[in-house]
Write a protein that binds this DNA or RNA. Structure first.
Lengths: 222, 222
DNA sequence: GTCTATATCGAGATAGAC
DNA sequence: GTCTATCTCGATATAGAC
């Protein structure tokens, strides 16, 4: 947009912008298609067609289809976990380093629930992450299995908040809470809507977060 | 084994037994491989090789790879839901048709948790069903979404047990409980084991069931 | 019913022109 | 950096001999 007197620099900038734009188009289209239809059901051709770019773009910019998936996974996971860590940090500040269970769970659940809002720009990213967890490549599953450093911040906080519980109890309850969270896929919402004959709606994410927090917090009682 | 004087009949019986045996070998091998590696990562060649039968067996006995997956899904789902329905029926009998929340949840969770036991012959079937739920074919997902008649028995029982709650509350809490259940995959157990540094073990399914019931029942309080 | 050989297809990846 | 054309592979499904 800003004019420049140097034609060569202008060309370079435009090329860089085009490159970034193409790469980003692929990234966004792939994320969306993977989230909606699953990794294995989406071909590189589907992605490049949806993005309006050339078939070879995926391999040029990302190396392979697997690497593309992994890069989306990495970026979105980092983004989500940053929001969670920030909330946990704030909860620590408010509570002299030892927040109650509810605030810890809120730090864990609020960011993904925010992303779930119908008009949120990361709505599709959250569905992607949920799918990647069970349908991803071996590399992704391996990261999920071995890289628990992020999750450990939360289990440590919970252990501090409930020193009366055995660590085993705390870990299992965290596992159950994560199960509640990971079940929030479009398909499961659809099923629930059919079962309840339209009496449930996932579009009010504030209410859903409140429901989840209440359920999980109650599970941590006793 | 039992001798017969009729050679022709004997041959027929043997053929029928062979056919049933081959079909069953394919069924069992496919269920195991799908459960361990996912539907898309297992080829018809993998299945027939593991079963020790001919490559063409899958198509001859089941029609297609998709149809094989669907038949496994159908049979195991029916089997599991029969056990659940029986337990719910017994709970009704014990409580003059209106069992408390805990007994309803126990009828829903106990059969799958039993299957999860390390030495249970349906251990792998449960992992298959959990995977099929998220990685299955369109046909399976469609059945899951639209056929809620089995689940409705449980939501109806819960609505009767908690007439003080809004139906919306009941449906959501059932959804959360199912999320806890569906998170019981091998990969998630592995992750939990890493996080807890070996302090959690899913092999004691009686203890796990008790933990899940306590957590879910607490979530239904209030 | 079973098996081998093969038809057919769609996928990811890439060479090489521009 | 981008694009077209193509390579190569692995998959399911099936025809036809036995």
């Amino acid at each position: 947009m800003s004019p420049t007197t140097d034609a060569a620099a202008s060309t370079e900038v435009e090329a860089a912008e085009t490159e970034a734009a193409t790469k980003n188009l692929v990234f966004v289209a792939a994320e969306r298609l993977f989230a909606l239809h699953g990794f294995q059901n989406v071909s590189v051709r589907d992605i490049t067609a949806a993005a309006g770019v050339n078939l070879a773009s995926v391999n040029y910019h990302f190396g392979s289809k697997d690497a593309l998936l992994f890069e989306i996974f990495r970026r979105r996971t980092a983004e989500l976990n940053r929001e969670r860590a920030k909330m946990l940090h704030e909860a620590n500040d408010r509570n002299t380093g030892s927040p109650p269970v509810r605030e810890i769970l809120a730090a864990l659940l609020t960011p993904p629930l925010r992303w779930l809002a119908p008009d949120h720009e990361r709505r599709i990213s959250l569905q992607f992450l949920i799918r990647a967890r069970s349908e991803g490549t071996d590399e992704i599953r391996n990261v999920l299995k071995t890289d628990v450093s992020h999750l450990r911040r939360f289990s440590d906080a919970l252990l501090r908040a409930r020193p009366d519980l055995s660590p085993e109890d705390v870990y299992w309850r965290l596992h159950f809470t994560l199960g509640m969270l990971h079940n929030n896929r479009f398909a499961e919402f659809d099923r629930l809507n059919v079962l309840s004959e339209g009496q449930t709606s996932e579009s009010d994410v504030v209410a859903l977060l409140e429901r989840m927090l209440a359920f999980a917090e109650a599970g941590f009682k006793g």
